[in-house]
């Protein structure tokens, strides 16, 4: 893989996909996210880095309203997707999550066959008119997640029987199958070995062609390898946000510098 930030990191589009203004999150009495402003661009990989408990995963979960499923969590401020407020009462969080897909830290395939895992989203959202359509979507998604060749002969086998790296790619295929516009990834490689990690990272780079990808990671090498934009969170604050190359070579904030050089964390 790449040891230095890639050249592609310079080629980012300027179109803003998600925009947050004055975002605050409270978990009960705990103020987890403090006044975060950020513009996430389309067809770009944006990585969130920062020490544990800094709020990066919490903020990620705000972007598709997964925090709604937690009773004690309150979100304030303004987050827009394509200019539309996602916390508007008229917005159906279920529809929103179809547009903003999510891949979790631990691979979590459903206890179903590989085929059914991928077909789950399209079936729920009525995306296929018939079986052939659905077959097409499943194949396309699995190919996109670079796992088709490994599973094409056993689509009926349970998804839980795959290896960790394959499971995570299956989960990515599952998320891709609903054709989201944004893909949120919460430490997608933390449960994987280095080889599987490399495969997933390669995949993330390919996904950038079609999606806006936001990835939370603890590995700064990973952030440097896969992302074009990097946001550094610390104690619930967004400390610094900018081009990955610039953050890692010439950070503006001393806290960012301390973190990436390993002095805080």
């Amino acid at each position: 893989m790449y040891d230095t930030p890639k050249l592609e990191s310079e080629t980012v589009t300027d179109e803003v996909k998600i925009s947050a203004r004055g975002c605050q999150v409270h978990y009960g009495d705990n103020h987890a996210i403090k006044d975060v402003d950020i513009d996430i661009q389309d067809k770009t990989v944006t990585s969130f880095i920062g020490p544990s408990g800094c709020g990066k995963s919490t903020f990620l979960r705000c972007l598709n309203r997964m925090n709604d499923t937690i009773d004690i969590c309150r979100v304030q401020g303004n987050i827009t997707l394509d200019g539309q407020d996602i916390y508007d009462p008229r917005v159906d969080p279920v529809q929103l999550r179809a547009r903003v897909g999510m891949v979790f830290q631990k691979p979590n395939p459903f206890p179903k066959s590989i085929y059914d895992n991928v077909a789950y989203g399209p079936k729920i959202h009525g995306m296929a008119r018939n079986k052939a359509d659905l077959d097409g979507i499943v194949e396309k998604s699995l190919r996109r997640a670079a796992i088709w060749d490994e599973v094409k002969d056993r689509l009926g086998a349970p998804g839980t029987g795959l290896s960790g790296g394959q499971q995570q790619r299956l989960c990515i295929a599952r998320a891709v199958a609903t054709e989201p516009e944004v893909l949120l990834m919460d430490e997608p490689c933390s449960a994987l070995d280095p080889i599987a990690t490399a495969q997933v990272e390669e995949l993330i780079d390919e996904l950038r062609q079609d999606y806006s990808v936001v990835i939370v990671t603890h590995s700064m090498q990973q952030a440097a390898r896969v992302s074009q934009k990097t946001a550094f969170f610390h104690l619930g604050n967004l400390v610094e946000y900018g081009d990955t190359g610039q953050i890692f070579t010439n950070p503006a904030d001393t806290r960012t510098e301390s973190y990436i050089t390993g002095r805080i964390g």
């Binding site: 279920v94 929103l96 999550r97 979590n108 729920i124």
Partner: peptide, 18 residues
């Protein structure tokens, strides 16, 4: 049943009863 299963399904845009 692990919470990860529910998260995975909700994250794909499924409703609670689905």
């Amino acid at each position: 049943v692990p919470q990860a299963m529910r998260d995975g399904s909700l994250g794909l845009g499924a409703t609670r009863s689905e």
